[in-house]
Design a protein around this nucleic acid. Structure first.
Lengths: 115, 115
DNA sequence: CCTGTATTCAACTTATAGGTTGATAAACCA
DNA sequence: TGGTTTATCAACCTATAAGTTGAATACAGG
């Protein structure tokens, strides 16, 4: 997997388990055991998912005795969202242009052939 | 890889080559050769990337003689962006709550110990 | 110190992503 | 008809993602 920030973020989001973990963390901090509870898979598997999320910067972890409370980090989500929106926007721009083009042609047809 | 829509979309976005292809397509339709031109890798590799993007619904392809013009499809990007923004927002909400909490504690400190 | 709890580390398996090269298919052009 | 261009298919290689089980680590409490 490429290791640039954006790729790490999107790759981390490309898994339902990890998205569910993030959703859970949006309600507040949680320990590894708490996060693992809803899933069928082993605790170790969840621990690995957390590692992926941490590497992507989507979570950070504290230390409280033997617990490692996880919390969300918003920054990479911002970046990802910005990337998407940029191209979503360029699209809309493109649609706008097309609409203007159609409009232009429509008007043009009244007086001339297209070239 | 999980094959739900959101996972397919994020997975497709988790590669710089594919993001570059989408960026290129935001400027308008292009053929496979045109899309492959900027990259060092083989045409077949780019063709595979296009297949990934197509499976994720991020592009669709027409037919014009031996050319297969690709164009962007915005819908999955919308969905992905919505997912991110939902959790980004719950975050902000959380921050707001924390700020209110801090404010509350700050005021509380003037008159009492915390319990 | 020993036990229990929380978490990670290590080794292993299986599936697949992402690249390669070579062959094939489809459409145009001479 | 045959040659060229455009693109895909097929087989293969290598790295790694995602899961498993079992051992190790870190800390709390009797």
């Amino acid at each position: 997997m490429p290791d640039d920030q954006l790729s790490l973020t999107f790759a981390a989001l490309a898994d339902p388990t990890r998205r569910a973990i993030l959703a859970r963390l949006a309600d507040g901090e949680a320990t590894v055991n708490e996060l693992a509870e809803p899933f069928e898979m082993s605790l170790q598997a969840v621990s690995k998912h957390l590692k992926v999320l941490e590497r992507a910067g989507l979570i950070s972890r504290g230390r409280d005795a033997q617990w490692r409370p996880c919390r969300l980090e918003a920054a990479p989500l911002e970046t990802a969202s910005e990337w998407i929106d940029r191209y979503r926007d360029r699209w809309s721009d493109r649609f706008d242009r097309l609409e203007r083009e159609i409009e232009r042609i429509r008007h043009g047809q009244e007086g001339q052939e297209h070239g």
